[in-house]
Structures are given as C-alpha cells and as structure tokens.
Simulated assay, not measured.
Amino acid sequence: MDQPEVIGIDIGGTAIKLGRFSQDGTCLKCLTVETPQPATPEAVLAVIVDAIAQIDPDNQTIAIGVGMPGPADASGRIAKIAINLPGWQDVPLAEWLEIKTGKTTVIANDANCAGVGEAWLGAGRNLQNFILLTLGTGVGGAIILDGKLFIGHQGAAGELGLISFNPEGPMCNSGNQGSLEQYASIIAIRRRTGKEPDQLGALAQAGDAEALAFWQEYGRDLGIGLVSLIYVLTPQAIVIGGGVSASFEFFLPAAKVEIDRRVMYTSRTGLQILPAQLGNSAGMVGAAKLAWQKIAAE
C-alpha cells in the first residue's frame, strides 16, 4: 500500500455516513446509506459491514473510527447508550467491527467526533481551547482543552445540551427537566413555533417580523445557556454547528448581548462565537481523526 487510509463513520437516526480518509484528512471516497429501521445494534452492524465492503473493496484501510448518537466508554470500545436507537445498551461495537473487518476500531460520541473534526480541519484548527455545540434534533457538545478532546474519567463528559436551563421546563429524554436541549434543539423549535428551522430561516431572510422575533428569543435563550459553559471553561471560542446553525446570523446578535451582559469580562476576553465549517461531514471527519490517533497510540 502506498499511503495508509482509515474509515470514518457517523451513525445517525436516519442515515449512516462513511468516508475513506488519508492522513492529511483528504476524503478519498464517501458513501451514505440508510439507517435500518428498527436500528437495532445487529441491524446497524450488518449495514456498516456491507457499506465498508463498498467503500473499501480492496481492503486498503487499516482502522475505523465510529461516531455514535450517545456516549461511549472511556476506552472507546463500548457504545454505552443511544437514547434514540432501540436496544443500544453496553454494545461492544468496536469488538464486533474488529471481528468482522480485521481493522482496529475506536468509537466515540458523535458530537465529540464533530468537535475533533472541527479541531482538525474546521473552525477550530487554529484554536487550543474551544467548545462545540451542535444544534440539531438534539443538542450535542464537545470540549477541546489544550488541543485534546476532553471526555472525563468515564468517557461521558461534554453533554453540553443536557445542562439545566429552566428547572420548570419540559422533560428531557436524559431525565433532566428543562435542559438547554429543550430550548435550543430542532424538536424544541417545532414545539415552540410549529415550523421547521429552515422555514423560519427563510422567513427571517425575507424580513418576516415574527420569524426575526423568534430568532431573537432563541438567541437570548442560547446565550443564557452558554453563560454557564463560559464561566466553567473560559474557551477561546464557541463553535456552533448542526442544522439550526444555518440561521446563525439571525440568532447570534441576541446571544452575544446576553453573554456580554452576564459574563464578567475576565471570563470572556477575546471570546469568539464561530459557525462550524464542516457541515454534515464533521462527525465522519472526526471519527477518521480518532482512528488515526488510535493507530498512532498503538
């Protein structure tokens, strides 16, 4: 083999994205397949193994990284739980894939993968300390400290969307009540407005007063949620990704007003709030980076 390659995989509720990557992050081939329904661990494994055979027919890759919609254990071997996928509890996915493919495998939370992707090739590539917030169906997060992904002693750190926002708010799948996710996710936006975020973005773009007012309220809530994270971590930047970030320009000003009002200047000097750069490929890219790191550590 001339140059080694790895596979990055991002498992989502409706689609599974795979890419073959060189060491500098070039995606040499990519593929998206439908997530089987119901998305049981065995069904997902079968689909992934088949997709790997399609993307790497000549067996050129040496490792696999997988992003999961839920926390992995600290060693990156076991999918601990995936709230929105049936039957995912303590699934030894890395071991299963190694048996099926013969390739070293590491797994991680999908938002952590997105953070690693943005740190490697995206909005965080010149930053040592930042947090990523993914505003999607749920709200995920990743913490990059001193250039490294912070996962805590059991692998589950960085669930930034599950911090408490309003103790009397709607119930969250996590068991928390009134988490930030219940105010900032796509599901929360639907509940509050009856509309999709892209509809509200288009309306705001056209100058619709109601949509603009909604985004201002949304930005205010997001800004208040970010205050706690800024005080704890004092990052260089907050990177905002996920589907809702398409309306970044409409909610950012209100978020900044709240941060400036509520955070002492000593905790926010030089703070940047940036849109993510890798879009839907961030998780797949970060999973590939984790595969490279796993190979380097062996």
Rank of each mutant, 00 (worst) to 15 (best):
D2N: 13
P4C: 12
I7M: 08
I9Y: 03
D10C: 06
G13T: 05
T14G: 06
I16G: 00
S22R: 12
K29L: 00
K29P: 00
L31K: 04
T35Q: 04
Q37V: 03
P38G: 02
P41D: 10
V47P: 08
V47Y: 03
I48E: 12
V49N: 12
V49G: 11
D50Q: 14
A53Y: 12
D58N: 01
D58A: 04
D58R: 01
T61E: 01
T61N: 04
T61P: 09
A63S: 10
A63L: 03
M68Q: 03
M68I: 06
G70E: 11
D73L: 02
D73N: 06
I78S: 07
N84D: 08
G87S: 06
G87V: 05
P92V: 10
L93F: 11
A94Y: 01
L97I: 04
I99R: 08
K100E: 15
T101A: 05
A114L: 09
G117T: 15
E118H: 11
L121M: 14
L121C: 13
G122F: 09
R125E: 13
L127A: 07
F130K: 07
I131G: 05
L133P: 07
G140M: 10
I143L: 11
I144K: 01
G147H: 03
F150P: 02
F150G: 01
H153C: 00
H153N: 07
G155E: 04
G161Q: 11
L162S: 15
S164P: 12
N166Q: 15
G175F: 11
I186P: 01
A188V: 01
R191P: 00
G201Q: 01
G201T: 05
L203V: 06
A204N: 06
A204Y: 05
G207R: 15
F214A: 15
F214G: 13
E217I: 09
G219R: 02
R220H: 06
S228Q: 13
V232L: 12
T234V: 00
Q236M: 07
A237C: 03
A237E: 01
V239S: 08
G242I: 08
P253D: 03
A255F: 06
A255C: 00
E258S: 11
R261M: 00
M264Q: 10
T266H: 04
T266V: 07
G270K: 04
L271Q: 09
Q272P: 00
L274A: 02
A276V: 09
G283D: 10
G286L: 14
A287R: 06
A288E: 11
A291D: 10
A297T: 13
E298D: 10
E298V: 11
